[in-house]
Design a protein around this nucleic acid. Sequence first.
DNA 1: TTATTATTGTCTCCTTATGTAACAATAGAA
DNA 2: TTCTATTGTTACATAAGGAGACAATAATAA
Lengths: 249, 249
Amino acid sequence: MLLRKNPTYLGLKLPDMPLPDPSEFIPHLAFDSVVFGFSKGKLKILLMEYHATGWLALPGGFVRKDEALEDAVKRGLFERTGLREVYLEQFHTFGSLERAQPKFMKTILQANGHQVEDDYWMLDRFFSIGYYALLDYEKVSLTPDALSDSIAWYEVEKLPELIFDHDEIVQKALQTLRENLDRKVIGGNLLPERFTMNELQSVYEAILGEKLRRTSFQRKLLSLDILERHEKLFTGKSHKAPYLYSFKD
Amino acid sequence: MLLRKNPTYLGLKLPDMPLPDPSEFIPHLAFDSVVFGFSKGKLKILLMEYHATGWLALPGGFVRKDEALEDAVKRGLFERTGLREVYLEQFHTFGSLERAQPKFMKTILQANGHQVEDDYWMLDRFFSIGYYALLDYEKVSLTPDALSDSIAWYEVEKLPELIFDHDEIVQKALQTLRENLDRKVIGGNLLPERFTMNELQSVYEAILGEKLRRTSFQRKLLSLDILERHEKLFTGKSHKAPYLYSFKD
DNA sequence: TTATTATTGTCTCCTTATGTAACAATAGAA
DNA sequence: TTCTATTGTTACATAAGGAGACAATAATAA
């Protein structure tokens, strides 16, 4: 038996989990979130597993008619992770004809006990706006939505097959994240407030998928003058203790 | 009296220019194109002027229900410029609540002789997907659509006020173009097949909004090994003639 | 107490990239 | 033939990044 603290249905809190009212949402429009976390040296993302089918998908949702796009994404993110303040960036909007796969969507709904007509709105063609989020792995408390059995972390390097075009969406998110990594200093969003230089380097390496030179990395980041140095971190290991850093401001 | 070779209405060829049939298009969804051209050393974009109101807007349109997003953008671009093959890139999707301004839209429709109800679909809230295009200024033949008196080039540095949030859209396009300029080699799309190094440098300067060093620029681009050198261009000026270049492949 | 080990912070040297200036080549005009 | 403006190339200086060396040090072992 599954435990759900906060039963929601694609954003609607509904005790009996009826289907959402189409009149409340923008038709044909959805969002998908690629939520990045970092743990044990690995870059991970959140995936949901739909009831019965076992199909894996990105956490997404619909936009209310009276709701700003970004607020909808934040709402969805909060419902799944419990976090309100996260680094969020839009990266692409997907609008091909091939993304519509009403048969799969119908199966998912059936697995949840819903028999719907062929013209039901959720079976329509959808345009999906992709956002990626960076957050502190330790801070999230995961809550599945009504359609799914679970929401959990998956290593980016070992992703299983995803439903619809969600593989493509993840790859595009990752590509954008990599391109933005050297322009903006965003790696820190995946770490706690204070971190060691080695941890920060591990984040960069996990995102870029390559090893970096320790000395060059340290020199580069210190020269940017964006880090504040704090007390040392004594881990109990028998070697020199590293400093803790935080981002200025 | 205005001469229109190819009367269209937001993509619909209609001799009597009735309003488009809502059932043919995805509701609440539009695209806007920031079309860049380069002429006389200046970076320019295409703007349309709506009938009677004089309001200026980006060329955009709606997406048919059976049409891929990118095809819709290409269709709109072809109708306005006569060009089929252009460099096209999606840069952002705009989905704030403030972008809906039904009063302005109603005025535009009225100026075209259309009285519509308040619940008319074109007055609804729209999500707009922004694309920018790079094309050869000399190759375009401009055709206004049914709602507008004219479509013309405007210097990016001296843009007039635009309708809705189109100023913001232009700035975001320009920002993305600048960021992409050093990652991808896209400046050449604004020039004819063959060009001089000086022309290419001017394109880069116009996009970045800053002067570049002639020698560094030449050295950098030649070292990338993406240019092919052709015959010299004799302009009749009393100095050394520059080589013509084209991009490889 | 002292030696050992692993990791960290910093420095040096070297290579590469870029800024800056100089210079020869040259197409047309004087 | 000389002059002018611009181009293609080279030379030198400075900045940035790769690669390795080395001292500092926290805990453990001797």
